[in-house]
Amino acid sequence: MGRYIRNRLLWMIPVLIGVAVMIFSIMYFVPGDPAAIILGKEAEEWEILALRQEMGLEDPFLVQLGRFLWNALHLNFGESYFTGIPVIQEIAMRMPRTTLLGFLSMFFTMLVGVPLGIYAATHRGQLGDSAVMALALFGVSFPAFWMALMLVLVFSLRLHWLPATGIGSWKHYVLPVLASTISGVGTQARLARSSMLEVIRSDYITTARSKGLKEREVIYKHALPNALLPILTSAGARLAHIFGGSTVIETVFSIPGIGTYMINAVNNRDYPIVRASVLVLAILFSLVMLLVDLAYAFVDPRIKARYAGAK
């Protein structure tokens, strides 16, 4: 098992290098000139060229790539072309907010979605099932930003219970987490339901019942651990989705996180920020995927055996 973890971590290195090269190349070839944006509308062509040379943007592709990779290896991602603030500093400050938002959202999505799905599965065809599926449809249909604005209208504007924007207290996180959770709960509930339904039909569930176990034991001790696998997969995917989609929530609620940092940078062609943010997110994803895979092993001994043995 330890060897498996070690191998996975080692594999992250070529993956990250690949990501770094890719994001560098993409930004290199995308049209749009940061020097022109910095100097503004009135700039002359020779001025722009001079700035580009100063910024190292006129060097050959491989030279620039090499410089970037070398610096990245030393965790030096440079400074923002626009504000001059070191990128790694900004990321260090914003990362916790985005990850907190992400993990809280994930946590509540699971906390609410999975039991709802199980409930629907065990009450299949009855009113409870329909109610849960209706709720799921609701959550899945409405876009997160619409949900966010609706929540703000109700809880901030009308009721004055919660702040509408910004960060600062735990209260500021309630609406953003709520907005992303509601959209996620629907998907999770449906997935949990279908996964459970499939597992409940298994023979070993009949065996468990025939042993005289209480229905609760049958569901939670026998069915659920087996139904977890697809649920875990979607948890990982959901987390990826949350990090990527956090920009919308961050913009609506003015939360200074990685999402907005990256989007602004893309618009401004602020290369150092884009490269660093993408790399950091890639690292985060890889670690999350590793955690999900380890969770598999924890839940299913067959997979654990495969990790320990085969690799």
């Binding site: 298994s202 023979d203 070993y204 009949t206 065996t207 468990a208 026998h222 651990p225 087996n226 839940v299 299913d300 001994p301 067959r302």
Partner: peptide, 12 residues
């Protein structure tokens, strides 16, 4: 039951 392959809970 009939099929021993699936009669036992794989994770216990």
């Amino acid at each position: 039951f009939q099929d021993p392959m699936t009669s036992l809970n794989p994770v216990m």
